[in-house]
Each structure stands twice: as C-alpha cells, then as structure tokens.
C-alpha cells in the first residue's frame, strides 16, 4: 500500500497547534516527512519536541491544524471520525511505552481485540492470534493475564496485538522506554525482524540512541522541525 514512488507515509507542511486557555502552543511548524514502504524509521528528539504528536498524526489518532497527512495515497487528515477509526483498525498497528493491555483480558484475548473489528470467524481469529503470539515468542503464555507477565512479555503481547491484523504500518511510541536493557534489546530485535523478515514499515519514537541505532534511519525533531542531524 504505497504510492507510485514507494512512499508510504507523506506528511506535508504540517502544523499542529494546541490551545491551553488563551495560550497557543505550536508543537509542529511546517513539518514535512516521507517514509518509504519497508522503512524502519526512528524519530528522536528532546521531550516536548513533537515526536509523539507526529506519530499520532501519522497514526490518525489526531489531526493536523494545517497541512496534510497521506498514508498509501489516502488523505487521512480529511477522514471523518468513523472512517478514521475503521482506517486505523485496517492499516495501523500501535505499540505503546506502557503496553496499554487491558488488565481484565488474557494475553490471547488482548491480541484478539483488533480482530473483533474484522469479519473473521472465531476459528480464524484464533489462528491469527496463535500466529502473532508465535511470532513474538509467547505461544506458551496465551492464557496469562497482563499482571502475571514481565514487562518484556507484556510488550511482546502489545506487539502481537499490533501485528495480528497484518497492518500497513507499525507505529511504536517509546516501545523500550519502560523496559530494562535486556528486555529492551529483545523487543528491538523483534521489531527489526518484523521489518526485515516480514517487510513491516515501522516508525518508532524513542529517546534512546541505542534503540534508534537498531532502526534503518533516524530523524531528529527539535522545536517542531525535522533534521537528519542530531541537534546540538
């Protein structure tokens, strides 16, 4: 799902302004970015630089104040709420810093959640869930609740949930931010494998240079603008 020249994500001259009372906070100012299909892009920058905001715009979780966001040639900034929700369900896999698993559901039920938005039968959903948990190496923990899993295992469940619908793009917001180095490395290896072996396009927000080093390329955000060079 990319356009003719292989660009999957096209963010064009985007501005994002948040209002706090009468104050306007310009988070992104005329930012443009292209992500080719099959890329593994790390977004780095200091706190408040707009990394997560940019990720939210690419994932259709928020809308730009100005500019456009196209994914696979579709202008998602112009979609209505219901269409955007359906688009997210079809095309986006989300991995969160704090995993965002539902505590009352087992690992397999958490992974199954995005499939409930499809027309797959129960049997087909089970096959997809097994396959996703197998990819992340957790096929032996399917019946466990999040509270009985380690941080690394919970993030694996989160990744399994993100890939279970075979989305067009994986968006990861600080996926190793809550993990120790060893578990973080395992998660990064998993993301690398998904990119290399399964061809997943990944955009990852991170503070960690070690994590960004596992990506194919890194771009830096500072004061709402992009740079290929780390800011001083």
């Amino acid at each position: 799902m990319s356009n003719d020249n292989g660009v999957l994500v096209k963010v064009n001259n985007v501005e994002k302004v948040f209002r706090r009372g009468s104050e306007e906070i310009h988070v992104l100012t005329g930012l443009s970015l292209e992500v080719p299909s099959g890329d593994f892009l790390a977004l780095m920058g200091p706190s408040g630089s707009g990394k997560s905001t940019l990720l939210n715009l690419i994932g259709g979780l928020d809308r730009p104040t100005a500019g456009s966001v196209s994914i696979g040639g579709e202008r998602i900034d112009q979609m209505g709420d219901r269409a955007l929700a359906a688009w997210r369900a079809r095309h986006v896999g989300l991995v969160f810093q704090f995993y965002n698993l539902l505590p009352v559901l087992t690992a397999e039920r958490n992974v199954e959640l995005p499939l409930l938005l499809t027309h797959l039968s129960k049997a087909d959903r089970r096959k997809h869930v097994e396959a996703a948990l197998n990819v992340v190496g957790l096929s032996h923990r399917t019946k466990h609740y999040p509270r009985t899993l380690s941080g690394g295992e919970q993030q694996r469940v989160g990744i399994a949930r993100a890939i279970v619908t075979d989305p067009t793009i994986l968006l990861c917001d600080e996926p190793t931010g809550d993990l120790d180095r060893k578990s973080g490395d395992e998660i990064l290896s998993l993301l690398q494998a998904l990119n290399r072996e399964h061809g997943k396009t990944i955009v990852m927000v991170t503070h960690d240079p070690h994590a960004s080093g596992r990506a194919k390329r890194t771009v830096y955000l500072d004061k709402g603008r992009l740079s290929s060079m780390k800011p001083e």
């Binding site: 929700a85 369900a89 965002n100 539902l102 995005p114």
Partner: peptide, 15 residues
C-alpha cells in the same frame, strides 16, 4: 481513560 483510549486507538468507534 487509558483503556478506553486504547480501544479507540485500535479502531473501536466512539459510538
């Protein structure tokens, strides 16, 4: 709040 936001991020509708 976070669980509801997560569900909506995954594609569950506001309705």
């Amino acid at each position: 709040t976070r669980e509801i936001a997560t569900l909506r991020a995954l594609g569950f509708g506001a309705g």
